[in-house]
Amino acid sequence: MNIAVCIKQVPDTASQLKIAEDNKTIEDNGIKYEINPFDEYALEEALRLKDKDNTINITVISLGPERVKQSLTKTLAMGADEAIHLQTDNSINDCMVIANTITNEIKKKQYDLILFGKKSVDQDNNQVGMIIGEINGIPCISNCSEFAIEDNKIVANREVEGSVEVFEGEFPVIITHEKGKNELRYPSLKDLMAAKKKSINTIDVDVNDNKNPELIRLEYPKKREEGIIIGEDKSAVSELIRILREERKLI
């Protein structure tokens, strides 16, 4: 079985972001990049399948600038078999462009299972997995918290509001992954050193974001005012209830 895991490199979720002077980009200075958390959960699921069946081949694919290589090396250290870097000059955020570029790559091999994180935590678009499914005529089950292979079929739990939908389908299939139930593995220093010697298949792709829509500006959300401390023990409770009920009419 061939599995592709598509990952995006994003700023660390703890990053404090600064809008650059052009009001359209984020300052790159001091940002630490990491694998998009949802993509890492997807990769973990693939690695767990491989733990049980060593004939499984895992290819990790990532689109982005030079720095993406560092994340790809990490996935090799975690246990992926191959890494493909679709190298661009800049980071690409246009979902249609991303989907078409990744499509060109996944067509080159017969993948049975193609995994994505449900969304990237930088642009929060939540689109690419489904679009690639549509372009390629491959069924996509989105927002899954876990999946299993049973009798050569995929059984995936899709998280929806207040319940879980269990979908069953045939291969090939695309899954977009929620945060999983399994803990992520961390590569050892030894694995990381060994992975640095493995080669990453780099393919230069000449793509750019479309100009429609046009990005007009970035801004910070309105800052919340610091509120008030009502009290320091349970005697503050009646005042809190009064405020929420009478002043704010929230309860």
Binding site: L17, L218, E219
Partner: peptide, 29 residues
């Protein structure tokens, strides 16, 4: 996706949406 404001302009629409989980708001035309 995830629009929080839609305004009408002559040729079309201007749309605001949060990115980076809301640390930044972007406006798209």
């Amino acid at each position: 996706t995830e629009c929080i404001d839609i305004s009408i302009i002559e040729e079309g629409y201007e749309i605001k949406r949060p990115i980076f989980a809301g640390k930044i708001i972007q406006t798209l035309r």
